[in-house]
Amino acid sequence: MHRLMIVDDSKLIRQRIAREYDADTFELIGTAENGADAIDLFEQSSPDVVTMDLTMPKLDGIDCIEQLISRDPSTKILVISALNDTSIGIEALEKGAMGFITKPFSGADLKAALKEIIDD
């Protein structure tokens, strides 16, 4: 069972991800609505898989990825962003993210992307 944390500033998206992930493989340990909360939650519950929005208040996704990876380099981070820009994708991967999907996404997209990063 992988421990999953959802980070997104939109409640709707958080609910959507929580509804779509594969419950046989993942156990949701919590959700955060900004980067700073995500760091706190990460330190309390040490998830191994994280879905990460990029544009968020307080601490944005790129910085958040960097901080999570510095705490645990084995963390598998899937970026879910509305920014369909290759530079931001490249930057996220450079900081240590393992996967990247863009909003809007389908349930199948999410499942496939999550499976891909844990299979690595």
């Binding site: 290759t86 530079s87 490249i90 930057e91 991967l93 450079e94 393992m98 996967g99 990247f100």
Partner: peptide, 25 residues
């Protein structure tokens, strides 16, 4: 700069080729 960073990622064995194809600038 973006292209060079992208090609550098291609040499990183931890990054999936399929994912990188989507990010091709």
């Amino acid at each position: 700069e973006k292209v060079l960073r992208y090609v550098r990622l291609l040499f990183d064995p931890h990054k999936k080729q399929k994912l990188l194809q989507d990010l091709n600038p």
